[in-house]
């Protein structure tokens, strides 16, 4: 019955702990709507047929209207709506509360892709792997405009807002591959900003983690900065701005304006160094567009963020 309804309503398969409860509330609300519609339109149809204007239709004085009846009807309606609201709100609370020992994954959205970074530094693009049965908490932000992380099979959605960190908690219940869609309009590539969640059985997930054996993200960034020779210039004050402690601070720019040295600015400076040049330094840095993978970029940004005086 449940499955039949789900298919009839075109709801996608369920793959998270929140999905079943949501679907059931959905049925309840739909049931209420249909019941009210049946009663109201039944009455309306009956009135229209019974009291239609026709030869020999004798009018009867409508009964006196009772204030009690009106107030009572409104109160019952309010009670029904409030009950629905309580159910929905309780459900939302449960959905928003991450389970114990939640696996935290950073999600960075940008036009038009999703990047995922795991606490151990593993990074992936457009593909999120999670273990079935373990609570997961996604920490989302965006590098440009607002996006929205949406997995229909999980019945879950959360906006990724630039300059803010938002979170989304879920527990995958069924192994499988599910679509990630962007639900907040973000430009011409909006409808193609899709990714996949791959929910793996716990054992498979553990095996995948080991296979990656990724180094700590900031440490990877430090090594990368060393290999690429970033520090040859960025350590000597006269040549390039020092990276130590720059993260999150305002940077005076050559054109007189200011930028905050956040992930967006640092990424832009890596890819298009001439765009926002630090005041007092020559625009000599080469562009690393196409030379650094997203994971490398994230590692470098993470390194700069960690590099505090």
């Amino acid at each position: 019955m449940d499955d039949l309804l789900r298919r009839a309503l075109m709801l996608p398969p369920r793959a998270s702990s929140a999905a079943a409860g949501l679907d059931h509330l959905h049925y309840v609300v739909l049931g209420c709507a249909l019941a009210v519609a049946l009663v109201l339109f039944g009455l309306l149809g009956w009135f229209v047929v019974r009291f239609r204007d026709r030869p020999g239709h004798a009018r009867v004085r409508p009964g006196a209207r009772s204030r009690r009846f009106e107030v009572g009807l409104a109160a019952v309606t309010l009670a029904v709506f409030v009950t629905l609201w309580i159910g929905g709100f309780a459900q939302l609370r449960a959905m928003r509360t991450p389970g114990p020992n939640a696996l935290e994954v950073y999600v960075v959205a940008k036009q038009w892709m999703w990047s995922f970074v795991y606490p151990d530094g593993t990074a992936a693009e457009d593909e999120l792997r999670v273990p079935v049965g373990q609570p997961v908490e996604l920490l989302l932000t965006s590098r440009d405009v607002i996006h929205s992380f949406y997995v229909p099979a999980f019945r879950l959605k959360q906006d990724a807002v630039p300059g803010r960190m938002t979170s989304l908690a879920f527990t995958a219940t069924e192994a499988g591959t599910y679509d990630i869609l962007c639900a907040e309009y973000c430009g011409a590539g909006h409808s193609r900003m899709r990714g996949r969640v791959i929910a793996l059985p716990a054992a498979d997930y553990a095996r995948w983690l080991v296979a990656h054996d990724a180094p700590d993200l900031a440490r990877a960034g430090a090594r990368l900065a060393h290999e690429r020779g970033c520090l040859r210039c960025h350590d000597v004050r006269a040549v390039a701005p020092p990276l130590l402690g720059i993260y999150g601070r305002p940077v005076p720019l050559a054109d007189g304006s200011t930028a905050i040295a956040d992930a967006a600015y640092l990424t832009e400076s890596l890819m298009d160094p001439a765009a926002k040049v630090h005041a007092g330094y020559a625009a000599t840095m080469p562009s690393y567009l196409g030379q650094l993978s997203a994971a490398d970029t994230a590692a470098l940004v993470e390194y700069i963020r960690e590099a505090r005086p």
């Binding site: 305002p250 005076p252 054109d255 007189g256 304006s257 200011t258 905050i260």
Partner: peptide, 10 residues
């Protein structure tokens, strides 16, 4: 706007 040249406190 773009030509702001005041203090850089956020």
């Amino acid at each position: 706007g773009a030509h702001y040249a005041g203090p850089h406190t956020p």
